[in-house]
């Protein structure tokens, strides 16, 4: 994508530095580890609620509004060399939506005191975030085609 076409795209469609979503996945991993350790307590519920908001901003508004993405652009990216190439935001944004799905379940379960469901939902979200951060493996993206195959069969 040329710079000229990038300039006219809305913020949510502009190509992103691929290190941004990966940095975000690392922060998400840390937040979810803390949430999993404290699940069932007030601190756990607050952490789950915070991560739900973070995913919601990334999925519903766009990566430019994702808090960890903002952190990356303000604090991390100025210290790094320019990215080798940019990537389309569609895949990481989809991953945010998958994360949001799990966190909404975790938040509802946490608020209604069903700790076991909250634990499982946070654990699955943590696994996905960790795979993304450590191995650059986007679980939600991998599931997408399988989902599409089932949906319209």
């Amino acid at each position: 994508m040329s710079n000229a076409s990038a300039a006219v795209l809305p913020a949510s469609r502009r190509p992103v530095d691929p290190r941004g979503p990966r940095f975000g996945a690392a922060v998400t991993t840390v937040v979810l580890i803390a949430a999993l350790v404290t699940v069932g307590t007030t601190v756990g519920t607050v952490l789950i609620a915070w991560q739900t908001v973070a995913f919601a901003l990334g999925a519903l508004v766009g990566l430019q509004a994702q808090p960890y993405g903002v952190l990356f652009r303000r604090l991390v990216r100025p210290r790094l060399a320019p990215p080798a190439e940019l990537e389309d935001p569609a895949a990481p944004r989809f991953a945010q939506a998958v994360g949001l799905l799990f966190m909404v379940v975790a938040l509802i379960a946490s608020l209604t005191g069903i700790t076991i469901v909250a634990t499982i939902a946070v654990a699955l979200a943590l696994a996905a975030a960790f795979l993304n951060a450590a191995f650059n493996f986007c679980l939600g993206c991998e599931m997408y085609l399988l989902g599409a195959r089932l949906r319209r069969s």
Binding site: I33, L36, V37, T38, V39, G40, G44, T119, A123, L126, A127, F130, L131, A134, F135, F137
Partner: peptide, 26 residues
């Protein structure tokens, strides 16, 4: 305490999946 074990279990399982993925991807 349960949460701590859950964290260890999830990270170990995800690491196994990640290593398998890295080996076979592409």
């Amino acid at each position: 305490m349960t949460g701590l074990w859950a964290v260890l279990f999830v990270l170990a399982a995800a690491t196994a999946v990640g290593l398998w993925f890295q080996r076979n991807n592409g």
